[in-house]
Nucleic acid binder design. Structure first.
Lengths: 213, 213
DNA sequence: TGCAAATGTGAGGATTAATCACATTTTGCA
DNA sequence: TGCAAAATGTGATTAATCCTCACATTTGCA
């Protein structure tokens, strides 16, 4: 995770570019802004988050906020970007040494559990990825993230089933990943025990598709 | 499909109740409002849709708009509600007479295709169900819709596999349905041929889960 | 030290959702 | 038919909020 504010992909209306914090002082302030935003999102959701409130909590002026973030969505995007970077590292590590079916079963099951727990425990994650679909930049980030994660999965699958059609593996991995997100989102929006059942059912389905019975 | 404006479930902040059109005149005006909103959503997306523009296109005043819709989201919700009612009828009809595995395979495959085509062809549908997650009322509508559709599927499954555990069928059907929506949304956001592959892969996965190999 | 670049500020401009006090039309009924 | 009450229609106005901008302050550096 770097401290630099990542350049957000252009949105429908291109937001004017913003400075990247180059001094230590401003880097710390940007951290405070993100922390404040994160706290507010956890409390009320990103939609209800007010720029003035973020600035106040971070102990900076509105102007400073806009110095580093072109608009409100960019703040949410920056938080989302951190989560994806972190989780990608985690996923890559978990799938890195998988070499057989049982290894994949094990690793996949654990990853799904982690993801599920994360969504249950982290209101910010829930909020960000729930609103995903409405925001073009976030949707693209999620898609890119899914593709990257699917790649890790494909790499593992190729080791397990070296003679399988690469395109099919690619398709299956991408689909399975995206469905996992859908399954977890669904699971957290219903009663806990039904959610658990849904996640378990998803795991079975996904693994059957990936490594067979 | 009834002409009445359905009462929208309470949102976070409870919107003040609005009149239901009881006279022929107002019913027609409400239709014009919805048509105008639909056209604007198709053109620019529901986020960019402006209340003033809806009113102008419908040939009514802002005040009239708010006479029948408590707020902006209620308009989108009303459109969404119509789509779900329509599609539920379609789904119920398609699954009504399914009595064996091959019948289900056939019906399910057709329903998925119809849904996929609908999303490809209907920008309003795309927009509404993309923004779904951000809006509590829409999320609830989608969930209720999924559950209702899952019920039709469960009914068919019980005829095919009468000795299966009902809870498991319920879980599988609900999950499969929700995943179908995720799969289609994913499919329409990538290149057409990749989308087709994804939908095909989803069908395979879903049917394997529902009726086995 | 002094200057240019980086950073900080918050009042105010610009949008836009939503309200409300009042006008007009329709309906139900004696 | 005539008329009171309910339903419907109107748009200037209010309120909330994002974001800009002109100017002040701080930092890095030769």
């Amino acid at each position: 995770m770097d401290d630099k504010v990542a350049a957000r992909p252009d949105q429908a209306a291109i937001a004017s570019p913003r400075r990247s914090p180059s001094q230590q002082r401003s880097r710390e302030r940007v951290e405070r802004m993100l922390a404040a935003a994160s706290a507010l999102i956890a409390e009320q959701g990103s939609d209800a988050m007010r720029m003035g409130e973020v600035a106040e909590r971070a102990g900076v002026s509105i102007g400073s906020l806009y110095q580093f973030f072109p608009d409100k969505r960019a703040i949410v995007w920056a938080l989302a970007e951190r989560y994806t970077a972190e989780s990608q590292a985690c996923i890559a590590a978990a799938l890195k040494d998988v070499a057989d079916k049982d290894g994949l079963r094990q690793a996949f099951s654990e990853l799904v559990d982690i993801y599920y727990q994360l969504f249950l425990a982290e209101p910010v994650m829930r909020d960000i990825w729930s609103g995903t679909q409405a925001d073009k930049a976030l949707r693209e980030l999620e898609l890119a993230d899914s593709r990257a994660n699917a790649e890790f999965l494909v790499a593992a699958l190729k080791r397990i089933r070296p003679d399988a059609d690469p395109i099919e593996l690619e398709t299956a991995a991408f689909l399975v990943w995206q469905m996992g997100e859908a399954a977890v989102r669904l699971a957290i929006s219903v009663e806990r025990d039904e959610g658990d059942r849904l996640v378990a059912a998803y795991k079975r389905m996904a693994l059957r598709e990936l490594v067979g019975e």
